[in-house]
């Protein structure tokens, strides 16, 4: 069954789907920068595989957003022809790669959050969203295995690797706050069973994270005040640079096709 019964619902769901899609696309772009630069060629491939999965998720979600919106916008229109102030990705996804340890911490936090979120989205009253989530969950389960495996190795590794991921965790933790600060749009969709409640996702995320941090000998930082809400298009200074590179080819050659 399709959950969209009124134009207002369609608008809310379009925005929500774009949040998911933008997070996937922006993170895919960030990860792809490791290709040719990984600590080993095996990790190059690992990051590239995850990046391609995320790109595939973004495409499915953009296509659905375009249908919901009903204005004829395509995947390319959403990815290449919107400005920074139009992007609704979670801010964490746009943050720089840093060293491999920082990339792993960012990836692990995002994987565990998205795994819980997409698992719960498979129960959505919106059939299409549930189907997209079901496909993505299989991919994200592997991503989480990869990133949490590395987080444990680095956290429980040498003094230097421990210090690097511990520092990255403290640096990145403030950006987790956004995911669990429920806004009116998420609340409205959750009340109709289209999306899970933010509280339920947070509980699942914390339960997944705790044993990994324990194994990695890392401490969960405490929550702090937070100023960026990428999901409401309030971004860090890093997104515009990322988009400039992501969109350069399409802007130089509009409508270019492979």
């Amino acid at each position: 069954m399709n959950a969209v019964t009124t134009p207002a619902t369609a608008r809310e769901l379009t925005t929500y789907v774009l949040r998911l899609a933008d997070t996937s696309l922006v993170l895919a772009q960030r990860l792809s920068a490791w290709i040719g630069h990984g600590p080993a060629i095996e990790e190059d491939l690992g990051c590239a595989n995850i990046s391609l999965d995320l790109l595939g998720q973004a495409r499915l979600l953009y296509a659905y957003a375009g249908e919901l919106e009903g204005a004829g916008r395509t995947e390319d229109d959403f990815a290449y022809l919107r400005e920074e102030c139009d992007f609704l990705n979670a801010t964490m996804a746009e943050l720089p790669n840093g060293d491999f340890g920082q990339t792993i911490v960012r990836q692990c936090l995002l994987d565990l959050w998205r795994l819980e979120l997409f698992e719960q989205l498979t129960q959505s009253t919106d059939t299409r969203l549930a189907q997209i989530a079901a496909k993505a969950v299989k991919e994200i389960r592997y991503h989480g295995r990869y990133s949490s495996g590395w987080l444990v190795r680095l956290g429980d590794g040498t003094d230097e690797s421990h210090q690097r991921v511990a520092t990255a965790l403290v640096t990145l933790w403030p950006y987790v706050v956004e995911w669990f600060a429920e806004d009116a749009l998420e609340q409205a969709l959750a009340e109709r069973g289209v999306v899970p409640s933010v509280a339920a996702v947070q509980a699942g995320f914390e339960a997944r994270l705790a044993p990994i941090l324990l194994a990695a000998t890392l401490t969960r930082p405490s929550n702090v005040d937070y100023r960026w809400f990428g999901k409401r298009a309030q971004h860090s200074e890093h997104l515009s640079h990322l988009l400039a590179e992501l969109q350069s080819l399409h802007r130089a050659h509009p409508g270019a096709q492979w």
């Binding site: 040719g36 630069h37 990984g38 600590p39 080993a40 060629i41 429980d156 590794g157 040498t158 003094d159 230097e160 690797s161 421990h162």
Partner: peptide, 21 residues
Amino acid sequence: MRPSAPRVQSLKVYGAIAMTL
């Protein structure tokens, strides 16, 4: 006690970026 940081050996060079293992 953690062991000291592993030594790395140069594996291959892509342009100016040394890939290490």
